[in-house]
C-alpha cells in the first residue's frame, strides 16, 4: 500500500494550490493553494483548487504540466468525502480510502483558516501541507 502511495506521489509531479477559507457572500468561493505531500523520502508539490459554498466543497488537485490527479467533493454537513475522479494509474481502492480519510480531516481545517494548514497521517507517514496563494470569487479568473 505504501508503494502505491509512493507511486501516487511520483505520478502527480507538481503544481501549487489555493484554498477557499471563506465564502464571499452566498457566491461559491474559488481558492487555490500550494500543496506539498511528503511520504518517506519522496515528495510532490501541486495545486489544489477549491470551490466551496455553505453545503459542499469541490476540489481538484492538478500537477504542474496540467494533468489532473484527483477531484473530490466534501459534504460539509455529513462530513464525508467522495473521490470523483482520480488518475487511473493510482486508482486503487486502498489509495482512495486513505485519501478520503485524510481529506476529510484536512478540508475542514483549510476552509476554516486562511493560513498554512498541515496534516500528518501517522500510520502511513503521509504529510500534507497547504499554503494559500490567493482568494478568488468564482467568476474571477
Amino acid at each position: 500500500m505504501l508503494r502505491g502511495l509512493y507511486l501516487f506521489m511520483v505520478l502527480m509531479l507538481v503544481a501549487h494550490a489555493d484554498l477557499c477559507a471563506q465564502e464571499v457572500g452566498n457566491e461559491p468561493c474559488s481558492q487555490r493553494y500550494r500543496v506539498q505531500i511528503d511520504v518517506d523520502k519522496a515528495g510532490i508539490s501541486g495545486i489544489c483548487i477549491l470551490l466551496s459554498d455553505e453545503d459542499e466543497v469541490l476540489g481538484a488537485i492538478v500537477n504542474e504540466f496540467g494533468l489532473s490527479a484527483l477531484s473530490f467533493s466534501y459534504d460539509i454537513k455529513r462530513d464525508r468525502v467522495a473521490i470523483i475522479d482520480i488518475l487511473p494509474q493510482i486508482d486503487r481502492w486502498y489509495i482512495r480510502r486513505v485519501l478520503r480519510n485524510d481529506l476529510r480531516r484536512i478540508v475542514p481545517q483549510i476552509i476554516s483558516s486562511d493560513d498554512v494548514c498541515e496534516y500528518t497521517n501517522e500510520r502511513y507517514k503521509l504529510r500534507y501541507w497547504f499554503e494559500p496563494l490567493a482568494l478568488h470569487s468564482s467568476n474571477n479568473y
Partner: peptide, 27 residues
C-alpha cells in the same frame, strides 16, 4: 514557472530536478 508560484523542472541528460519552494528532488 514564475507566477503565481515558482517551480522548476530541469532535465539534464538522464537526471531530472524538481524544485519547489518547499523541497527539491533529483530523479
Amino acid at each position: 514557472y514564475t507566477s503565481p508560484y515558482t517551480y522548476t523542472f530541469i532535465l539534464n541528460q538522464h537526471q531530472v530536478l524538481l524544485k519547489s519552494a518547499q523541497r527539491q528532488d533529483v530523479v
